[in-house]
């Protein structure tokens, strides 16, 4: 990393221009690094783009010159194996330039690889992420050794390394938060580990990067980088069981969730809903989106999701649950209050 940074100095304007051109939101972009790993690869990218740009310019220059060159009168007959002493030397020089460029890039790449590996040695927050068709199960290990589960929203403390163990429940997925780090595949039968060290606060977005079936497109998750204190508070709050319903509508919603279809797949800790097949709903109301990044969280979105998941995310394992208007509203209201 140090080598790559030294070669290139700070940020080059090239990718920034591209970023400006497109008005990208930047919450899921490798061009706007907010973590150590993404930063190191971004500097490598800058080195690459500069050197490759120079090489491309050189090729175009040579090509253009050979096309527009004013030619002296050459013999009319085609030339068979003419002597090309000057070009022969040029070939050697060209080869030398390519080799030199590749050596620089391979060396830069090696240093970045080493920097990524260096993060391994540090003390780290332990997180487990499990890829399911088409959502993410996320579990945190607390200092006292308990596991706290949530889903589709990853909170990380800034300035600290999180060691994420990746497991697959069904098929191969790939864990990717471009602003924070490169991707790592989630493979059945293998436990992959990725270290992430975010340093900038804010909301980011991650997405499955390996094709995993019908709803690969809607297998995203939100990432929140918090200050360490805010993170600890969040984690403590996540560890608590669900809030008791505050009003009659919420109580009615809770009864439907625990006694109806929801509880068979979903868990609401502290209630009779103990299913393990779907995402943990204990604090679902506090999350930013639902359906693994399909919809922004709101009472209306929850209602729509419960009534018509197959219209919003065709093929999702979430079945349509037939509820009348009042019941659906009660369930949505109850889930919304689970903060």
């Amino acid at each position: 990393m140090a080598g790559a940074a030294a070669v290139n100095g700070g940020r080059s304007p090239v990718p920034l221009v591209a970023l400006l051109l497109t008005g990208c939101s930047g919450i899921q972009s490798s061009l706007d690094p907010a973590g150590m790993q993404a930063g190191a690869t971004f500097r490598l990218f800058e080195l690459m783009i500069v050197m490759c740009g120079v090489m491309y310019g050189a090729v175009l220059l040579f090509l253009g010159a050979s096309v527009w060159r004013v030619r002296r009168q050459l013999a009319a007959a085609p030339a068979i194996e003419p002597a090309d002493p000057g070009l022969g030397k040029g070939l050697w020089a060209w080869g030398g330039v390519i080799v030199a460029g590749l050596v620089v890039l391979a060396t830069g790449s090696f240093f970045v690889e080493r920097a990524l590996a260096a993060a391994r040695a540090r003390e780290a927050l332990q997180v487990r992420v499990t890829g399911h068709q088409w959502w993410w199960r996320i579990q945190y290990r607390t200092p006292d050794g308990r596991w706290i589960e949530t889903a589709n929203e990853l909170h990380l403390p800034a300035g600290r390394t999180a060691r994420i163990e990746l497991g697959a429940a069904d098929v191969i997925h790939s864990f990717w938060v471009p602003n924070v780090a490169g991707k790592m595949d989630v493979i059945p039968g293998h436990t992959n580990v990725i270290d992430v060290s975010p340093h900038r606060l804010g909301w980011f977005r991650g997405q499955c990067a390996e094709f995993c079936g019908a709803q690969h497109a809607h297998m995203a998750f939100d990432v929140k980088v918090d200050s360490p204190a805010a993170f600890d508070a969040w984690l403590a709050q996540q560890g608590r069981p669900a809030a008791a319903p505050a009003d009659a509508i919420a109580a009615r919603g809770m009864a439907i969730v625990t006694g109806g279809a929801c509880g068979l797949c979903h868990v609401v800790r502290g209630s009779a809903a103990t299913g393990r097949a779907g995402p943990d709903l204990t604090h679902v109301g506090g999350r930013r989106s639902i359906g693994a990044g399909t919809l922004p969280m709101s009472r209306g979105a929850l209602q729509g999701w419960i009534a018509q998941p197959q219209a919003l995310k065709p093929g999702t394992m979430m079945p349509a649950v037939p509820l009348d208007g009042a019941d659906a509203d009660a369930v949505a209201h109850y889930l919304e209050t689970l903060r």
């Binding site: 690459m48 490759c52 790449s109 490169g182």
Partner: peptide
């Protein structure tokens, strides 16, 4: 762009 994807650390951002 192939040279870029050939770099293992950078490819982690580029692949797929």
């Amino acid at each position: 762009s192939g040279v870029m994807t050939a770099s293992a650390p950078l490819d982690l951002q580029l692949t797929d």
